[in-house]
Design a protein around this nucleic acid. Sequence first.
DNA 1: TCCCGGCCGTGACATTTGTCAGGGGCCAGG
DNA 2: CCTGGCCCCTGACAAATGTCACGGCCGGGA
Lengths: 210, 210
Amino acid sequence: MSGGSTPIRLLLADDQALVRGALAALLSLEEDLTVVAEVGRGDEVVPEARRSAPDVALLDVEMPGLDGIAATAALRAALPTCRVLVVTTFGRPGYLRRAMEAGASGFVVKDTPARQLADAVRRVHAGLRVVDPTLAAETLAAGVSPLTERETEVLRTARGGGSVADLARALHLSEGTVRNHLSAAIGKTGARNRADAIRVAEQNGWLLGE
Amino acid sequence: MSGGSTPIRLLLADDQALVRGALAALLSLEEDLTVVAEVGRGDEVVPEARRSAPDVALLDVEMPGLDGIAATAALRAALPTCRVLVVTTFGRPGYLRRAMEAGASGFVVKDTPARQLADAVRRVHAGLRVVDPTLAAETLAAGVSPLTERETEVLRTARGGGSVADLARALHLSEGTVRNHLSAAIGKTGARNRADAIRVAEQNGWLLGE
DNA sequence: TCCCGGCCGTGACATTTGTCAGGGGCCAGG
DNA sequence: CCTGGCCCCTGACAAATGTCACGGCCGGGA
């Protein structure tokens, strides 16, 4: 409820132009909201925010240049008064955790009804936290990543789909070491394959970082 | 360009409620367009279309229940006068081909600027075809799937991530046969791994069918 | 008719992948 | 200081995956 005061200024970041524009249309229907900027890449968020001074930024997680989590952190550092609402396709448990750690005020999946989005924005702007309850539960259940730093790194590199020899070369490790890290990751994820392990880790958002 | 006549009736199908609602908002801004139905599953398209009699249906490809391609075919069979515009996240070359074969009139990726969507809808309604030109080129380049029926089936099953023994049991084949089909698929896709082959095939839209 | 080419199915073989036991470095607690 | 725990690294071994050559089946030309 705006109360007739100046509207809440919004920045939208999503790599899909159509979705971005559609969200802008949706939010512009609200009297108390106004979209002041749109970007399609994570690394454009901070520069554009500096120029347009939004009150709330809606960031997608999957973006070229810089993922939404990293963009959140960068934006919080650059403009501490600007709140962040992460809006993402995938309800990966780890995403939520990482987003909150990075300083986001809210986390919404694209499955949520359209009518709730505007309210989420208002709540975030008011300083409240907005989190999908079922997703929060999952996050608790999934817990923090059990993978060690090296294991994550190897797994992340393995996503590209090379042989052990390739990975060893890329990471400057012995093949045996790579195999061992992979084996450990497989064990910890409960998978039986390298491919499986990658999928599980990805679904839990354990492969995000740099 | 409505000309004051009755507006074009639209049906929206997308599994992400937020995107669906946002698209509705975007399209409702146009004088000559009206959204008469929204569904979140592929198998709800035909029943809902029967009830609401849309002129144009905007279908996502990735949907639960029935994928957008199959939904296109079903809709064309049930209501031949209703045109179909496929709106999808991924510009997989094979998707376009399959969509057109299934009777779609247009194919748009979610990367396209929001302003063009309404025009695409109007063109489709007017009986024209709408296709992303760069994507069309890719489709030509990628060509039709080189995979044989069995190979596709094996690869599709392998997506779940089981061992050769699992696949053999699921498909009632010898392990050697499964290995052979996989090997052939790996060769044809130019991959060096099973996982790689799956990715390539998926990216080209070769794993769609039933 | 016969032959040719493609697809399917199969087993033996080489290669890759995953497991295991173990050594070295580092840090926190006793 | 020593000790225990954790992580990183490595090589040898077992298990899985991928390659190959082969035979049967079917349909479309010579």
